[in-house]
């Protein structure tokens, strides 16, 4: 099945790599480059999955996630975290994340996560 997916990362390479992989599997992808924009888009709703980078300037991914959950947005969220930042993963789950993928990431594994979250 295909879904509408919001991809948020401040790194253009990662945004594009995630987007092309998900699009190739038939999903509709919209990208955002920072936390504030991501929160705005997230609040608009209509997403099946949100892929969210943790470490962004300004609002971090965790901040965005917390704000979304506070406002009752229950869309599944997959966090992108840097390898070795275990505390990000803990903080992420505490804030209401559903899954995480560490960077450098395998686009294929990320797609599998997204598919699982959609199911």
């Amino acid at each position: 099945m295909s879904g509408r997916i919001l991809v948020v990362d401040d790194d253009r390479d990662i945004r594009d790599l995630v987007a092309i992989k998900l699009e190739s599997a038939g999903h509709e992808v919209v990208t955002r480059a920072d936390g504030a924009q991501a929160l705005e888009a997230g609040m608009e709703g209509g997403w099946d999955v949100i892929v969210l980078d943790v470490m962004m300037p300004g609002m971090s991914g965790i901040d965005v996630l917390r704000a979304l959950r506070d406002r009752g947005v229950e869309t599944p969220v997959i966090l992108l975290t840097a390898r070795g930042q275990e505390k990000d993963i803990e903080a992420g789950f505490a804030a209401g994340a559903d899954h995480y993928v560490t960077k450098p990431f395998s686009p294929r594994a990320l797609l599998a996560r997204v598919t699982a979250a959609l199911g």
Binding site: D11, D13, I14, L17, K21, K103, P104, F105, S106, P107, R108, A109
Partner: peptide, 12 residues
């Protein structure tokens, strides 16, 4: 070279 910082697996 830059993108290889970000991905692993088949894509890499």
């Amino acid at each position: 070279f830059m993108m290889l910082q970000d991905v692993t697996g088949e894509a890499a």
